[in-house]
Amino acid sequence: MMEVQVEDQLKTLNYSGVFLSCFSDYSEKCIHSTPEHVLLYLYSGEQVIEDRNKIIKLQAGDCAFIRRDHRLKMYKNSKGEDLYKGISMTFKRNVLRDFYSKMNKSEIPNKVKVSDKTVFKLERNPAIESLFQSLTPYFDRNIQPTEGFVHLKLLEGIYALLNSNEQLYPILFDFAEPWKIDLLGFLNNNYMEELSMEQIASFTGRSLATFKRDFKKISNLTPQKWLIRKRLEMAYIQLKEDGKKVKDVYLEVGFKNPSHFSTAFKKQYGFPPTAI
């Protein structure tokens, strides 16, 4: 199914998980927050991605993979006479599960270090270039791709990702087994709660040993450190973007006292929360 949305200076086309955006003004700012992985290609213009204290810049021809369940600030800019044109692919879990079920598991690289990066700027390569160039005709709303064509392009996108960076294997296929609750989904929804590791394991349908083993597949942090980092990231957003006060934020994100919060915040960001 195709959805078309046109708003004065913004044109966005959605073809079942493939999004094409075109801006005719100088700049657009948006908040990116999605429960699914996204592959983004910049056809023209410039895109700036702000991930807390990190800045990633994309120029025409650049491509980036954005991990699911993260909140980013994006600036989509025209550059000179070149309008902003971007294409993105959203990889839903059912597509990734189906892809994984048909893979030759012996070809999956062993002992890949799990990365905690949110945004991966990919090296330019012919596979990614040809994939996205084949989608550019669909910026014309009078030309619509078939469902089958879009599905094939999503599969092509998965292959291109796996061939570009082996660190993406454990990230793309981090879903839980069907009878288990998805770990990241549960933790992102409950990071502010005071739960023991035993409780989290139980709530997600695992023994404590299985929970620890599964968690290692999705992060190189311990569960406790992952939770602290998540709380600090959400505190950063509330302090900087929402203008909240420290005394209102630390309890809301799950810290029990302001001193612990301030110390942990300064350790992660290099400055105290009161400096924002």
Score class of each variant (00 low, 15 high):
261 F>T: 12
77 N>I: 00
232 L>H: 02
51 D>E: 12
177 E>H: 10
59 Q>C: 06
251 L>F: 10
56 I>E: 12
174 D>L: 07
17 G>F: 03
156 E>W: 04
147 E>T: 12
164 S>V: 06
85 K>S: 05
58 L>Y: 00
26 Y>V: 07
29 K>H: 05
210 T>V: 11
217 K>Q: 14
157 G>E: 06
234 M>K: 14
44 S>V: 01
176 A>H: 07
216 K>V: 02
191 Y>T: 05
113 K>A: 15
63 C>M: 04
90 T>V: 14
113 K>T: 15
232 L>I: 08
94 N>W: 03
46 E>T: 12
81 E>Q: 13
134 S>Y: 03
62 D>M: 00
137 P>E: 04
113 K>W: 03
213 R>P: 01
26 Y>W: 11
233 E>H: 05
9 Q>E: 08
121 K>P: 11
59 Q>M: 07
181 I>D: 08
68 R>S: 11
68 R>W: 02
75 Y>Q: 07
45 G>F: 06
107 E>G: 03
15 Y>L: 04
95 V>R: 05
52 R>Q: 03
46 E>W: 05
152 L>E: 14
80 G>T: 01
91 F>C: 13
113 K>V: 14
145 P>I: 06
248 D>N: 15
103 M>W: 00
44 S>H: 03
51 D>P: 00
177 E>A: 13
19 F>Q: 13
102 K>E: 15
257 N>Q: 11
248 D>Q: 13
2 M>F: 01
79 K>D: 12
265 F>D: 03
60 A>F: 04
237 I>R: 06
137 P>L: 03
132 F>S: 13
265 F>C: 09
17 G>T: 06
63 C>S: 09
81 E>D: 15
107 E>S: 15
241 E>D: 14
56 I>R: 09
105 K>A: 06
258 P>H: 10
49 I>K: 05
160 A>Y: 10
54 K>A: 11
218 I>M: 07
256 K>P: 02
165 N>R: 08
103 M>S: 08
112 V>D: 02
24 S>N: 14
88 S>L: 11
72 L>S: 06
78 S>P: 01
122 L>P: 13
192 M>W: 10
38 V>K: 10
143 I>H: 14
255 F>Q: 00
183 L>S: 03
272 P>G: 11
274 T>D: 02
49 I>C: 04
162 L>R: 03
143 I>T: 15
235 A>H: 01
41 Y>K: 05
32 H>Y: 10
50 E>T: 11
194 E>I: 00
24 S>R: 13
168 L>E: 10
17 G>S: 02
150 V>Q: 12
231 R>G: 08
92 K>F: 04
214 D>K: 13
15 Y>H: 09
185 G>N: 15
62 D>W: 00
66 I>H: 05
276 I>V: 14
31 I>N: 02
266 K>N: 15
173 F>M: 15
219 S>D: 10
123 E>M: 05
269 Y>E: 08
21 S>C: 10
250 Y>M: 07
209 A>D: 15
55 I>E: 13
157 G>S: 13
197 M>W: 07
63 C>I: 09
10 L>K: 01
245 K>W: 01
113 K>Y: 12
67 R>C: 10
115 S>G: 09
204 T>G: 09
15 Y>V: 00
245 K>P: 08
99 F>K: 07
228 I>M: 10
7 E>M: 07
229 R>L: 09
99 F>C: 08
146 T>W: 01
153 K>I: 05
30 C>Y: 04
20 L>K: 15
25 D>G: 03
131 L>P: 15
